[in-house]
Structure formats: structure tokens, C-alpha cells
Nucleic acid binder design. Sequence first.
DNA 1: GTTGAGCGTT
Length: 220
Amino acid sequence: MRGRSYSYSPSPPRRYGGRRRSPSPRGRYGGRYRGGRDRDLPTSLLVRNLAKDCRPEDLHDPFGQFGPVKDVYLPRDYYTGEPRGFGFVQFVDPADAADAKYHMDGQVLLGRELTVVFAEENRKKPQEMRARERGRSYDYRRSPRRRSRSPRYARTYSRSPDYTPSPRPRRYSRSISPRDERYRRRSYSRSPYRSPYGSRSPDRGRSYSRSISRSPGYSR
DNA sequence: GTTGAGCGTT
């Protein structure tokens, strides 16, 4: 239980300044980094001002001209499913990312001027976002699904042409669902599908089901 | 090996 041990971080985490957005127009990677270490350069670009109907393909295509794109991800609202209007394009080579940023920044895509910057923050995990849900509007949790039945379908990322969406035959997904949250409030292990009394077919053999649950009143 | 609820949505 180390919770958040950032004391052990030998590398000083780059301070993003909290909420204050760093007004670095040039950014620290304005030009070519003469350190020689390319790995230090970010490979993820944050593309802002995307059209609502912008798809990962639309980004992957133009951005891919500068180099192999590792991944394109368009975050969407988890509850409403609406596109947030920005996306991430990750390159394999940071040099390509810098090049793409330079060239694509200001370009018009789908009638919108793109704003490309380097992704500063690291990727966020769902668990991290879950904590964020507290700060969010409370009303949003009431209607989590707007487009699909499950948020799983809300994903709009294209990673690979052959990406397998993790076809889990398991129907009882333990995944955290905005709706599922309500269930966890009260019971932890209780399955909503199974009632303690399990009256699945009350019409049929009701006395029968009873006998299964308990001894048929046979000798106490 | 990774993370799909990624920060900058009008």
C-alpha cells in the first residue's frame, strides 16, 4: 500500500503547473532536440478542434504521411458518448510526430482548423478517470448510455486493422460500468441476475424449486 | 506486454 509513491521518482516529474496551462507557444520541443535522445521526445500528439464526425481514419490518413502512426485515439464522453472534439495521434518515431505537428498544425480537416500540440499528460487509465467522475456532473450518471447499450461500444479508437475487441463470451462482465456502479453500492458480490431465492420460474414447479433450495421438509 | 474514460470540446 504505497498509494501514490511519487517520492521514489528519481526523475523529477515535469510539472504541468497544475491547472495553469503553460503558455509555451514554442513548447520545449519547438525545434530539434539536440540531445540525441529521441526517446525523450513525445510521440503523442494532441489534435484539437476536431469535427464531431471526425473518425480516427481521418486523422490517421493525413498524419500518416509523415511517418508510421502507432495509434489514433479519439476520446469520447463515457456517459454521453459524444466526441470531445480532440484526439491523439501517436507516432512511432518522435521525429515524425514533430514533423506532423509542424505541418498539421493549422491545417483544415473537415472544415476545421486543427491545433496540434504535443501531448503533455500521460495516458489516463480508466481507474483514474473513475475518480474524475466524482467531479463531474451527477446527473450524467443517470443516463450513461445515449448511443449504445454499453459503453464498450462507445469506443472509437482504431488501433489496428485487425484489432480484436476482446470478444469476451462472458456475459457477466465485471467491468466497471456507470450503471453497474449502482449495484455495487449496496451489494458487492451479489449478482443482479441471481436472486437469493432464485424464483426464476415461479409458475413452473414452484414447489419443486423449493425442494431444491431446502430439504423437502423431510424430517425436519 | 501494458494502458481505450488521454489534457486543449463552442
